[in-house]
Nucleic acid binder design. Structure first.
Length: 202
DNA sequence: CCCGTGATTTAT
DNA sequence: TAAATCACGGGG
């Protein structure tokens, strides 16, 4: 029986690295859908032009990003997509880690049912909105506590972060508008994993 | 490459 | 109130 991952109090870069290789679990009607976290991005709060909390912006949408580490921040964009962030740090810091891709491990049949366009397992969760669709994650989960809530949690499969040589670092995806912040190496992937999204390779 | 799609944010 | 924007994905 896997324990829950609960070390959400650190800064977003540390948390991002710690989350790689852990297991994201969604329970719907008592049934599990799960996958290993293989790609994440760190969002650094006030100073980070690409973060929703940039400049201390505090809007209805991103309010939950100011909760203490361990909560979910789920937002809706492009009129059709949801994305899941794991809030980290302390209350009011506005820092989080975007979960960008999973290697599916449980509930694949249900994932295929939800993801009409998926032809192979690497299409199921290889992007932030893909995994949200596959795991039925939407704004109803915004602000929930990942350390206590039954519907969405992270299981700790390893006590320590993966060794640095197994982690690839690249700029973040889709933040070209963010000036200097668009090039910073804040995207982290498990090197060589086929389930990562189609962002920059290095 | 282009485009859907509509909530959310930002400008007037 | 109106206009622009968008942590994306799918199909050519």
């Amino acid at each position: 029986m896997a324990e829950r991952f609960t070390s959400f109090g650190a800064d977003p870069i540390t948390t991002a690295r710690r989350l790689l290789g852990q297991r994201l679990v969604r329970v719907v009607d008592g049934r599990r859908r799960a996958g290993l976290i293989v790609e994440v991005e760190a969002y650094l709060g006030r100073e980070d032009r690409a973060a929703h909390t940039w400049g201390g912006r505090r809007t209805a949408r991103c309010e939950s990003m100011y909760l203490p580490g361990g909560h979910a921040y789920v937002y809706f964009t492009y009129g059709m997509h949801h994305c899941l962030n794991v809030v980290c740090g302390k209350a009011d810091e506005g820092v989080a880690v975007l979960i960008r891709a999973l290697e599916p491990t449980e509930g694949l049949e249900e994932m295929y049912r939800r993801r009409r366009a998926a032809r192979r397992t690497t299409d199921l969760c290889s992007g932030p909105a893909k995994l949200a669709e596959a795991l039925a994650i939407d704004r109803s989960l915004d602000g929930i506590d990942l350390r206590r809530d039954a519907g969405l949690k992270i299981e700790r499969l390893r006590a320590r972060a993966l060794p640095a040589r197994r982690i690839e670092t690249t700029p973040r995806v889709g933040v070209a508008y963010a000036g200097p912040w668009s090039h910073k190496p804040l995207r982290f992937l498990i090197r060589g994993n086929p389930h990562v999204s189609s962002g920059p390779r290095r």
